[in-house]
Design a protein around this nucleic acid. Structure first.
Length: 116
DNA sequence: TCAATGACGTATC
DNA sequence: CGATACGCCATTG
């Protein structure tokens, strides 16, 4: 196998509630830079393995799924339920973007960096 | 093996 | 901001 879905799943499942990450971000964190599409493929295949797939959005916080699709609505619903602000099919990355690393180690997940 | 596709991303118009 | 184009690469027919 050339790709390890396991890696993708690990990253996605590591996203804390109330935070979101982009496909590219997840891919990069998983060790597959520029493999953003494969993240989507893995999620599509997961489809309910208990992965917080709804915490994964497109570039700029855009919902990657068709707004009419039930999945998209479900995603928005879940995000809002976690306190994520979703407007016009978009997530406020400035507040909800998952920033793993030292920050997370020091402040812990859920710590919303005011970015601005 | 080739061609088409996809829960993407960036650049350009 | 919407439409297009191109890059990316595993998967599928």
């Amino acid at each position: 196998m050339t790709l390890q879905p396991e890696r993708i799943r690990a990253v996605v499942s590591a996203i804390p509630p109330g935070a979101v990450a982009t496909y590219g971000q997840v891919a990069a964190l998983a060790g597959y830079p520029r493999h953003a599409r494969h993240v989507g493929r893995v999620l599509a295949r997961a489809g309910g393995d208990g992965l917080p797939w709804h915490r994964v959005v497109g570039a700029g916080g855009r919902i990657a799924l068709p707004a009419r699709s039930p999945a998209a609505r479900e995603q928005v619903r879940r995000l809002r339920a976690e306190g994520v602000v979703v407007t016009a099919g978009r997530v406020d990355l400035a507040r909800c973007r998952w920033q793993p690393g030292l920050d997370e180690l020091l402040w812990g997940p859920g710590f919303a960096t005011s970015g601005d």
